[in-house]
Every structure is written in structure tokens, then in C-alpha cells.
């Protein structure tokens, strides 16, 4: 269970997150939606303790993590795994070493058990034949799937995904979305997925939260999101309808601003 209460965060004087609150019950998949740069990834980094909020509270499985030191965070992070946007595989290690990294670091299992767990995880993502490859030899989609296998190998209670389908072709997008669904169905893992891929979001989400300019503007089900008449949400979900006219751009408050064509501007300009 993850609980975010009234989180505020500032970077270089700019308010990045404002009063974000959300509850993610155990075993559920929560999707965080929003445009680029709205603060979605920042939210994941807060959960992982890579960033610290200015104010507010973050409780993970009953333990408050705000104010914990790096060393105290270690036991919290041991329950979690993250799939980074660019996969973030260690490029000096093979796929086998990447997937089994945490298990070898922890040293709690013998070599044979770790090898078995690595093979299982890679089989789950359909990449059992890449064991001895280096990350540089893999395609973008394969890297993402290896990153999911790495997250899976340590059997975490919580998995965080940062744009898992970004930059992937439709087949890999489908494969990755399906993996997230299977983890939910078969392993009952609590998952938080940051994305702006609506198709993926609708498919995997138990609940969605939408962030706009650092502020949570929606928290609810897929159906409730689609029925929302908030102009900011409508613009995000159906830009082809809202921004249909040429020269239309989304306004920061959710409306539409119209930029006149270049020639018109030139005529209006003083001599």
C-alpha cells in the first residue's frame, strides 16, 4: 500500500508538484497520466526515495519514508523495483548479470538458485535466449523487457514503471502492456505506471490519476476519466477534437489558444 498525502516539491524555485495526494491499495495497478514535464516521473522518484519532497507525507507499506536517510531507505527499496524509461540496464554487464544483479548483491541465495530465478524472469518476458548478450546488442523493446525481468527477479511487492511503452513499436508496446497485466493478474504485484500512452493506460489501469502542471486534476477509474468534462482532460484524451482547427494550441488553463498564421502576423506588425 502506498499513500501520498499533500506532497509539494520545488526545483530551482519552480513548483513541480503541488498538493499531490493518492492511495494505491496493495495488488492494484495505478496509472499516472499527464503530458511531458508535468511531474509524473518525479512522483516515481519520490516513492523510490531518489528525491525528497518539500512537504507532505509518503507512506509505503505502513512506513513513512520522508526524512529517511539513504541507509534507512535500503529496506524500503528492497520491497520495490523500478523499470526506468530508458531501461537503465548496466551496460558493462550481460543480460544475465543485469537480471540477477540484486540477488547476487544481496547474497542471500546460492548461485544455482539465482541462475534459476534469472532464467525464470527472462522466460516470463520471452527473452530466455538473450542470457549472455550485452545490453548494446538488444533492441529498445528487448531492453525494456529485460528491465522488467530485472525488476521481477527479486520478487518485489511494488513495481514502478516510467513510460514503459515510450518509443516502442506497436508489437513491443502490446508485449510490455501484456506483461504489466500478467504481473497484476498472476503475481498480484502493486504497480504504479507513469505513461502518456492512453491505449496502454486504459488496458492496465485499475485506477488513474492525471497530473497537469504539477497538480492532480483527476483521480478515478478509466470510465470516469473518459466521461470527464474538464477541458484539460478532454484536450489530453481527445486532442484531435479539441485542437482540430489549424493554429490551435492547448492553453495552460485547459482552454484553447489560437495562434494566427505567419502571414497574418506579418501584416499586423507595425512598419
Amino acid at each position: 500500500m502506498i499513500r501520498f498525502s499533500n506532497i509539494f516539491l520545488k526545483f530551482d524555485g519552480r513548483q513541480v508538484l503541488q498538493n499531490i495526494s493518492m492511495d494505491v491499495p496493495a495488488g492494484q495497478t495505478q496509472v499516472i497520466l499527464g503530458g511531458s514535464g508535468c511531474g509524473k516521473t518525479t512522483t516515481l522518484r519520490l516513492i523510490l526515495g531518489l528525491l525528497h519532497p518539500e512537504s507532505g507525507s509518503i507512506v509505503i507499506n505502513g512506513q513513512e519514508i520522508v526524512g529517511l536517510t539513504e541507509r534507512q531507505m535500503a529496506s524500503i527499496r528492497a520491497q520495490m523495483a523500478m523499470v526506468f524509461q530508458g531501461a537503465a540496464l548496466f551496460d558493462s554487464l550481460t543480460v544475465r548479470e543485469n537480471v540477477g544483479y540484486r540477488l547476487w548483491e544481496e547474497g542471500a541465495l546460492d548461485n544455482e538458485s539465482i541462475e534459476q530465478r534469472v532464467a525464470e524472469s527472462l522466460r516470463f518476458v520471452g527473452l530466455e535466449d538473450t542470457l549472455d548478450k550485452m545490453p548494446a546488442e538488444l533492441s529498445g523493446g528487448m531492453k525494456k523487457r529485460v528491465a522488467i525481468a530485472r525488476a521481477l527477479a527479486c520478487k518485489p511487492k511494488i513495481i514502478l514503471y516510467d513510460e514503459p511503452t515510450a518509443g516502442l513499436d506497436p508489437i513491443n508496446t502490446h508485449l510490455v502492456s501484456e506483461l504489466v497485466c500478467r504481473l497484476h493478474r498472476e503475481e498480484h504485484v502493486t504497480q504504479i505506471v507513469v505513461t502518456h500512452d492512453l491505449e496502454c493506460a486504459y488496458r492496465i489501469a485499475d485506477r488513474l490519476i492525471m497530473i497537469h502542471r504539477g497538480e492532480a486534476i483527476f483521480d478515478g477509474s478509466v470510465d470516469a476519466l473518459q466521461a470527464s468534462d474538464d477541458p484539460r482532460i478532454r484536450t489530453f484524451l481527445r486532442p484531435e477534437e479539441v485542437l482540430a482547427e489549424p493554429g490551435c494550441f492547448p492553453h495552460k488553463d485547459g482552454g484553447v489558444r489560437v495562434v494566427p498564421p505567419m502571414s497574418e502576423k506579418a501584416e499586423q506588425a507595425p512598419a
Partner: peptide, 12 residues
Amino acid sequence: TEQIDALRAEGT
């Protein structure tokens, strides 16, 4: 490439 963050996430 976020590998240092990944190390921290992996508990290292």
C-alpha cells in the same frame, strides 16, 4: 542514462 539511479533502486 539513469544507471546510477538504477543502482540505488537495486539497493546498492
